[in-house]
Design a protein around this nucleic acid. Structure first.
Lengths: 221, 221
DNA sequence: GTCATCATGTAAGCCGTTACATGATTGC
DNA sequence: GCAATCATGTAACGGCTTACATGATGAC
């Protein structure tokens, strides 16, 4: 799951260093991938060892030195200039030795595997993450992803309903079970709309067929 | 989370052995607690060590001994007789040495602590489990549980909305974020109805007040 | 000169899983 | 006699978290 998020981000947003990866994951995908450093850095090391990413030590080619410093006469002014020069010299870096990571071809292939996620966990986060990166998937695989998820949820719904069928449950347990069923149906409905959108996008003839316009528009409630 | 499920089950359904605990958890609470033996048995041992449960070796009052064994002369025959005698001797059990667990007073106190779950994880399973056992909680604690959960969800909703506010998201990422917000609102609405029901149950005067009947009825959609 | 932020990493621990080992009992 | 089910446990591993260690840089 973490690997998928890292690779996806590197693929979409270009080369990044660890700290930045975490920041962007938190900001962009919020709850789907709010990862801690304690898992992020080992994950990056693992991916590098596997050849899925390359790290450059971020000793990037230094910019040509800035124009000579006009003395200001004030000490704090000189200081400020020195600081800014140092910043200018290491421009684009600003900070510590930052290891910048870039996704490799092997990484892209791994990303594709994780994205289809045949043997992946069926938790909502994992699915949400895969769907969030679904534009990197060919259309049929995308549809398959959605339908596999739909199948999982309907199976779980059946389970929940058999659990709810027994009447040994008190008010609170009943409320929980009922709400689980409700939420599952809500999710399934959402998937159905997504699937419908995918299907109509996959058959471009539909847009040309008479009367098809109504079916195409307004997919996402 | 596991401890809570075990203690709750032992409290509600009386004394049980490990195998049965797992069975009932799977059947009754389904997705909330489908636990594996690999975690269940260590958990029971832990709870026993902590004094939260007592185990009786299931050497329940033995039936009067069967008639003396007539020797058959064959070794396997003797064996078979020994086995069947053992079976007869331990009548009502039928199977292996089953350790039957019973919740203690310390266990009940621990259960109450876990149920209020002040420092517990905020994942849906954990909350669902606590709510499912909420009838063992005093009414104010129950209300507090619901309101704490509501607060968490509204905070997360705000997070999701700030994440969704940026327009760097493509169709799929957007769909995921939007649906997360949607599902959160759905959950919050459900909590609101539960809270409302709790509140009106907590103020018995309300039922007597004129015109209050409409507010009380039909809480749970 | 001190505090917040940026930046990378290690160590320990939590909470669960699957797989393995063992064995009794029942039903066919 | 063989498979399915009942019953208890151990071992190894997974994937994540928190806490800790370290240090540079920037802002005031």
């Amino acid at each position: 799951m973490l690997d998928l998020a890292i690779l996806g981000l590197l693929e979409e947003r270009g080369d990044l260093h660890g700290y930045e990866i975490r920041k962007q994951l938190r900001e962009g995908l919020g709850l789907l991938a709010n990862v801690s450093f304690g898992s992020l850095y080992p994950a990056l090391a693992r991916l590098e060892a596997a050849g899925a990413v390359e790290a450059t030590e971020a000793l990037e080619p230094v910019e040509p030195p800035a124009a000579p410093v006009p003395p200001t006469g004030s000490l704090s002014g000189e200081w400020a200039v020195l600081r800014s020069r140092r910043r200018a010299t290491r421009r684009g870096r600003g900070r510590r030795s930052r290891k910048v990571y870039r996704i490799t071809d092997r990484g892209r292939s791994l990303f594709a595997d994780l994205l289809t996620g045949q043997g992946a966990a069926d938790d909502p986060r994992s699915f949400g993450l895969r769907l969030a990166f679904a534009r990197h998937l060919p259309a049929p695989a995308r549809l398959a992803l959605l339908e596999r998820r739909r199948l999982q949820l309907t199976e779980r719904l059946a389970e929940v309903r058999t659990a709810g069928g027994q009447d040994a449950l008190d008010v609170y347990a009943r409320a929980v079970v009922d709400h689980m069923a409700d939420a599952l149906q809500h999710d399934i409905g959402w998937l159905d709309r997504l699937i419908e959108t995918e299907r109509s996008a996959a058959t471009p003839g539909a847009a040309l067929a008479p009367g098809a316009t109504a079916a195409v528009g307004g997919g996402a409630r």
